[in-house]
Simulated scan of single mutants.
Amino acid sequence: MSGVDEPGLPTLYDWAGGLVPLRRMIDRFYDRVEADPDLSGFFPGGVSEHHRAHVADWWAEVLGGPTTYTDRHGGYESMLRHHLGLDITPAQRHRFASTMSLAADEADLPADPEFRAAIIGYLEWGTRLAMENSRPGATPVEHAPTPRWGWGVAPPYQG
């Protein structure tokens, strides 16, 4: 799938600094999840290196980076399968989203309001979709491209 049509703007992936800072965010996030009584139950025994790497690849692709998750890990269909039947509650979804926001701070991702609005916009959309798809009896869209997220209504301020 091609990127978002935002001519002249860097991708969110590039603005974040690439895979290394995104992986740092994912590691900070899962370190917090493992210690969180409301979220750790989704990962009995802890969050594996394998899972962390795959989620970092997902975030990289969604934010406009390489298509590694789709090419090597199964794309949207694979991500969907990981959430089916989890029955994520609204409180758990909120906890997940707020924990990821804290992890972005701890990973020193860019703190400008435009970038944070874009990634939190994706986080809200993605966690709400995952929650709905996780419900018993849900009938999610079975085949879709991996989303590619852009700046939306607040492009980067470049002075």
Rank of each mutant, 00 (worst) to 15 (best):
A104E: 00
R95S: 04
I88S: 05
E106D: 09
T68E: 14
I119Q: 03
L102I: 02
E124W: 04
L123F: 01
W149G: 04
R148I: 02
D105S: 01
T139Q: 15
A117H: 09
E142R: 15
S98Q: 09
M100I: 00
P145L: 07
R135D: 04
I120S: 03
P136Q: 13
T67E: 13
Y69I: 10
R95N: 06
T146V: 15
A144R: 15
R135S: 11
E114A: 15
R72Q: 15
A111L: 00
T99Y: 05
A130N: 05
D105C: 00
A107I: 00
Q92F: 08
G74S: 09
L84C: 09
R148L: 02
R72T: 11
T127V: 03
T146G: 06
L86P: 05
A103P: 01
R135C: 03
G150M: 09
T68W: 11
H143E: 08
A97F: 02
I119Y: 06
R72C: 08
W151Y: 11
P113L: 04
G126M: 03
E114K: 06
S78T: 08
L102W: 07
D108I: 00
R135E: 10
H83Y: 10
A91V: 14
I88F: 06
D71I: 10
I119L: 06
L80W: 12
E142C: 08
R93M: 11
G150T: 12
D71W: 10
R128Y: 03
A97Q: 12
P136C: 07
G121H: 04
P90M: 10
S101Y: 00
A138S: 15
N133Y: 13
G85W: 11
P90Y: 09
S101C: 00
T139R: 15
R116P: 02
T68Q: 14
D87P: 10
M100Y: 02
H82Q: 12
Q92V: 10
T139V: 14
V141G: 10
R81E: 08
H82F: 07
M131W: 05
A111S: 08
G152I: 04
R128D: 12
A107S: 00
G152T: 06
I119D: 01
P147C: 08
E132M: 13
G85I: 12
P140C: 13
G137D: 09
P145V: 06
H82E: 00
P90I: 10
P136E: 10
S101E: 03
T127F: 02
T127N: 06
